[in-house]
């Protein structure tokens, strides 16, 4: 999936089935080839801050959208969100939390840290597809990012 095209959507998801369904949804709206998928929070942070295996990445070209799962091994979604929103340069990247959890504390904490949207993944796949497509289109195509 390595591409010269700039990465527009970073998908942070440890569940491959959810990832496949998300990608399918994005693809169906022609956003599929601009998605980069990482499988945990640590990798997500390396990608965003151009560290580790992603050190060669151009930090000046951050992703246009981060789709972030919360419940992940190693570094969880909340931690990723905190670091992104705490960073002067990365703060502007829209982060949409997509999670199975409807837990109040997760919702509250996410908004406190500065999440741009909080989406509960529906069990109904059709509904899921619709949600993902809407978010992707909105944040990638409609939203203007400063700078």
């Amino acid at each position: 999936m390595e591409s010269l095209e700039p990465i527009e959507i970073l998908l942070v998801e440890d569940n491959p089935k959810d990832a496949e369904m998300t990608l399918r949804a994005l693809r169906s709206h022609n956003l599929g080839n601009r998605v980069f998928w990482v499988k945990d929070g640590a990798e997500a942070l390396d990608f965003i801050f151009c560290r580790g295996v992603y050190a060669s990445r151009d930090a000046a070209r951050p992703p246009k959208l981060v789709l972030l799962d919360l419940k992940m091994p190693k570094v969880d979604g909340i931690e990723v969100l905190r670091q992104v929103k705490a960073d002067e340069r990365m703060r502007a990247i829209p982060v949409v939390v997509m999670t199975s959890s409807n837990e109040e504390r997760d919702v509250t904490e996410s908004y406190r840290l500065g999440v741009n949207s909080y989406i509960v993944k529906p069990i109904d796949f059709a509904a899921f597809l619709e949600v993902v497509a809407k978010i992707g289109l909105y944040w990638v195509l409609t939203n203007r990012v400063p700078g």
Partner: peptide
């Protein structure tokens, strides 16, 4: 328990539905 129910049960269920749809 609730937390894991909401996460862990929903994810495979979503997969069941999602893959059936695919």
């Amino acid at each position: 328990f609730s937390y894991s129910v909401s996460h862990d049960l929903r994810a495979p269920l979503r997969a069941v539905d999602g893959y059936a749809l695919m």
